[in-house]
């Protein structure tokens, strides 16, 4: 399994993955620098305010969309020139291939999250924020956002193994991501919509007494539940996929 991961990593290094990974911090910096300080809540710590404003767009739109792009990227070279049939005729099981690709995908999202953290601190320093750095809150947000992408990553990996075309899997991604804009405004619907979870998990204003910004029940049922549905769905699809 680990050798498979190494092989995946090797294939990936030869593609244009870096520009995609760096869009995370670039988008972070763009949002952070263009954002208006008036939007910061007055009473809060400046850093928390900045994080709140930056996450608004980053977690709601960028993170779900980039998850799909990364998923399509790690499947792209298999779709080209018969990569799948070559890979799957090696002595590896399809299950291993799917799980490895999934781990790789979540790992890449983690890298993006960490780069985003760097861009967040840079923006803060550039803006000369003087308040104490709320380490716990920031990390809660970064890691929480990462965990919330697990189900989305599973669905996008499923779509990317199914469609050759980037545009096709991206369309599916967009169709599901956009309603999140509405969902987060709705107290009834928001907590149950998987594409709204990265936002909720990164939303600093949430309940700070728990480990994450959303209650454990919601994390387990919505994030965990949709993860299981999408992961098992993709896994079964991939096992049966005629290559």
């Amino acid at each position: 399994m680990f050798t498979l991961f190494q092989a995946e990593w090797f294939k990936l290094r030869k593609t244009n993955i870096l520009p995609i990974l760096f869009t995370g911090p670039i988008v972070g910096i763009l949002i952070g620098l263009f954002a208006n300080t008036d939007m910061f809540p007055d009473e809060a710590n400046q850093w928390t305010g900045l994080l709140l404003v930056m996450n608004l767009t980053y977690a709601l739109l960028f993170l779900p969309l980039v998850t799909g792009i990364l998923a399509a990227t790690i499947c792209r070279y298999e779709h080209q020139a018969g990569g799948w049939k070559q890979l799957l005729s090696l002595p590896v099981s399809r299950e291993q291939v799917f799980v490895t690709k999934y781990f790789l995908l979540v790992f890449l999202i983690l890298v993006i999250q960490l780069l985003y953290f760097l861009s967040f601190t840079s923006v803060g320093l550039v803006r000369g924020l003087t308040d104490t750095f709320p380490m716990a809150i920031v990390w809660k947000s970064i890691v929480g956002g990462w965990i919330a992408t697990f189900p989305l990553a599973a669905l996008q990996l499923w779509m990317s193994t199914m469609f050759k075309s980037f545009a096709a899997s991206f369309s599916v991604n967009v169709i599901f991501t956009l309603p999140a804009i509405l969902a987060i405004n709705s107290a009834k619907f928001g907590p149950y919509y998987p594409w709204a979870q990265p936002f909720s998990m990164m939303y600093v204003g949430g309940d700070t007494t728990d480990v994450f910004f959303i209650p454990w029940e919601q994390l387990l049922t919505v994030v965990g539940g949709s993860f299981l549905v999408f992961f098992i769905g993709g896994y079964i699809y991939f096992k049966r996929k005629p290559i």
């Binding site: 520009p19 995609i20 869009t23 980039v66 980037f166």
Partner: peptide, 8 residues
């Protein structure tokens, strides 16, 4: 060629 970049 790689549509990942234009989409990004």
């Amino acid at each position: 060629q790689n549509q990942g970049l234009p989409i990004t």
